[in-house]
Simulated scan of single mutants.
Amino acid sequence: MTIQYQCRHCGTHIGTIDERNVNTEELGLSQLKPEEEDEMVQYDTQGNLQVNVICENCHDALDQNPDLHEQDTFIQ
């Protein structure tokens, strides 16, 4: 299983874990609430995961502009 981490705001590829024996519990994904998992984690047809997180640049932008939290997307 390959796990791809991508920024949910700007789409930047953050990283990849390419391990066949990765346990989602070890990654902390099992601690997500069902609605969080629906929003953050997608499986493709080969069983690989895409995890939507926030990159450092978007995190900084949100910290500096708290009103951006009200918008679904703020990167244009």
Rank of each mutant, 00 (worst) to 15 (best):
G28H: 08
Q71H: 12
R8K: 12
I75P: 00
D18S: 14
N57D: 13
D67Q: 11
I3N: 03
R8A: 05
T73Y: 05
L49F: 00
H69F: 11
Y43C: 05
T45W: 02
N52F: 08
Q50P: 00
V22L: 12
D72C: 02
G28E: 03
Q31T: 13
Q76H: 08
D67H: 13
D60H: 06
E19V: 11
T2H: 14
G28K: 08
T2N: 15
Q31N: 14
G11M: 03
G47M: 02
G28W: 11
Y5P: 15
L32P: 10
L27K: 07
N48S: 12
Q42A: 13
D60T: 11
S30C: 07
V51R: 00
R20I: 07
T16G: 02
I14D: 03
Q64N: 14
Q46D: 14
P66Q: 10
C58G: 05
N52R: 06
T12G: 00
T73D: 08
K33S: 14
L62T: 03
Y43K: 13
P66I: 07
L29Y: 07
E56K: 09
K33P: 03
G15A: 04
N52D: 04
D63A: 07
N57H: 02
R8N: 05
C58M: 05
L49R: 06
E70C: 04
I3Q: 02
A61P: 01
T45G: 02
